[in-house]
C-alpha cells in the first residue's frame, strides 16, 4: 500500500516534469502482459491499479488469450524492463489478495 502510493506520486511528478520540460517528447511503447490464471475480479482490480499510475494505461484486455495490452509513457525501447515492473505490480496485488500465497507460490502460480 505504501509502496503503491509512493509509485503513484513518483510517476505523477515524472509526467509533470516531462510536460514542463520544453522540447522534450515522451518515448512511449505498448507492451503485452500475461494475466494467465487470474480471476475476473483480480483482472479488474489490476486494470484499475495499472491505470491509476499516470504513466501506464491499459488499452485492451483479451480474456480468451489472457493478455493485457499496456501503454507506457517512459518505455524507451526497454520492453523487458517495463514488463518486469508491471509483473511486480501484479504479483504484489496477488500476494495481498490470495488467501494462501505461500502454497500458490510453490505451485508456480505466483512468480
Amino acid at each position: 500500500m505504501g509502496w503503491y502510493l509512493w509509485q503513484f506520486v513518483l510517476t505523477s511528478l515524472q509526467v509533470v516534469a516531462l510536460i514542463l520540460t520544453p522540447g522534450r517528447q515522451p518515448k512511449p511503447g505498448i507492451v503485452r502482459m500475461s494475466i494467465d490464471g487470474l480471476s475476473d475480479t483480480e483482472v479488474t482490480v489490476l486494470v484499475v491499479l495499472i491505470t491509476i499510475t499516470p504513466d501506464t494505461l491499459v488499452i485492451a484486455v483479451d480474456r480468451e488469450k489472457d493478455i493485457l495490452f499496456v501503454h507506457g509513457m517512459f518505455v524507451d525501447g526497454d520492453s523487458e524492463g517495463f514488463r518486469k515492473s508491471l509483473g511486480q505490480t501484479r504479483d504484489r496485488l496477488l500476494f495481498g489478495v490470495r488467501a494462501r500465497p505461500e502454497a500458490e507460490r510453490k505451485r508456480g502460480v505466483l512468480a
Binding site: P28, G29, I30, I59, A60, D62, I67
Partner: peptide, 26 residues
C-alpha cells in the same frame, strides 16, 4: 479503448508497439 477501436493510431515513435499486429483485441 474507444479511441483505439475507432482507429486512432499511436504516434510513430511508440516503440515497441506489440498491439499493432493484433487486430481483434476485445
Amino acid at each position: 479503448r474507444a479511441s483505439y477501436m475507432t482507429g486512432s493510431e499511436p504516434v510513430s515513435t511508440t516503440l515497441p508497439d506489440e498491439l499493432s499486429h493484433q487486430a481483434n483485441a476485445t
